[in-house]
Design a binder for these strands. Structure first.
Lengths: 140, 140
DNA sequence: CCCAGTTGGTTGGAATATACAACTTTCCAC
DNA sequence: GTGGAAAGTTGTATATTCCAACCAACTGGG
């Protein structure tokens, strides 16, 4: 198999993967959309996130982010802390409840993953993890 | 690194990947939404697809599929052929124009992929392709 | 210091996508 | 045949998004 075919194969597998994610859609966590979940995870993972950062990172309109964040705020999953360097902005922080919900969703997904990968030998897992990481780094 | 950590790493990379796909959103092919593109690709790839099959496969409501297919039909990208075994149904087939559009989109994505992976040695590419394929098989 | 332009964020309005429900036509099992 | 299930279409409601207009606050050049 030449290089072009191999890349075509990778392309095919990636589209298959994204389609499956698409097919499962919002069935991940009840009552929390994929976008809301993604934003919450980002707020949890990164330090000093403002709404504008989220908009830039996910190529969403700032009004969209504003409403999504408002929703997360109303549900008590994030709290906006006034940014001491810029009175216009707020730094978004996750609440304990938000963290709990996020951990819950993550755990359920990881469990499913672990279950499906139970037949993989340790070595293949490590290789796959490393290649995936390199792939993401090269693509971003 | 133990098995749990490795799997957590894979999980993290996969979410990073899906988020990037999400972020790029519909910017893939002008004038063709991600859903429309996905359905078109499915119609092209599988034999004897009916609207109900698409709905079942992607967990979409049949009304949603009906409208999406109507749109693809209006654009001349698919043609519904009456199903000779069932007068209620139509078998969806891709048109030459639909194929052309699909090939165009695929080629542009594959080019981008090839460009980003240009630094990878042949062997790593092959390993990655094989592991991805196995992963998809195990997850589906 | 002040003013022009920029940036963070909110809100109103319109477009779009989707799910749910009701309906028609056809199929199938009895 | 008849009753129930299935394929698809269409009406309606809701959710998500973008665009535009807006306000408040920041920034840099005079």
């Amino acid at each position: 198999m030449d290089r072009g075919e191999t890349i075509a194969g990778i392309y095919g597998e990636l589209t298959r993967f994204t389609r499956r994610v698409r097919a499962r859609g919002g069935a991940w966590h009840p009552d929390l959309s994929l976008v809301a979940y993604t934003l919450l995870a980002h707020i949890d993972g990164a330090g000093r996130v403002r709404a504008a950062d989220l908009a830039a990172h996910y190529a969403l309109d700032k009004s969209t982010v504003s409403r999504q964040v408002a929703d997360l705020r109303e549900r008590g999953l994030v709290t906006p802390v006034p940014d001491e360097r810029d009175a216009r902005a707020h730094v978004l922080t996750i609440t304990p409840e938000g963290r709990r919900r996020l951990d819950e969703a993550n755990a359920s997904l990881r469990d499913r993953l672990e279950d499906r990968l139970s037949s993989w030998p340790e070595e293949d897992l490590a290789t796959f993890a490393a290649l995936l990481a390199r792939f993401n780094a090269d693509m971003s």
